[in-house]
Amino acid sequence: MVVSFKLNGIKREAIVEADTTLYKLLRELGCYSVKCGCETTNCGLCTVIVNNKSVLSCAVLALDVDGAEIETLEGLESEALEFGLCMADEGSEQCGFCNTGFIVNVVMMMRELDEIDRESVKKYLAGNLCRCTGYQGQLRALEKFIERKRGIKI
C-alpha cells in the first residue's frame, strides 16, 4: 500500500505493509535519530511529531500517516538544537540514546504549553525515560532553556 506524507517539509511516498509501524518506516527513510527502547509505549524514545502532536512512532501504523505532516529531529534543526546545546552544556546528554525522542518532546512542549512551571514540565515529559542521567541534569538544561525562551525560572 502506498502512503504519501510530508516528512520534515519534504513530500514523500512509501510502499508499506499493513503492519509496518511509523517507527520502522521512518528509519527506512533514513531518519536514524528515531530510536526504539521498549516496544510497549513506555519509554518515549521513538517520539516524533505528527500533525503538530507528539506521538510514539512504535505505536502508530505507517498507514495512518497518509496525508500527515511528520517532523523528526532531523527536520527540527534550530528549534531543537538550541535545547540540545543546553543539554550538552550540562553534560546531560550522557549516552545520547534517549536524547532524540526527549528533545522532540521538549520542542512540542514549548509549542503546546503556554504556561509552564516545574511540575508541568515534569508531567509533560514523564513519558520520556532516561536511564543515565536521573533526569536532574535534563531538568537543569530545561531550566536554562526555558529561562532563555520565556524569561521565567521553573
Partner: peptide, 8 residues
Amino acid sequence: AIQLVTGQ
C-alpha cells in the same frame, strides 16, 4: 555531545 544531541 553535538553528534548525540542532533541525533546523528
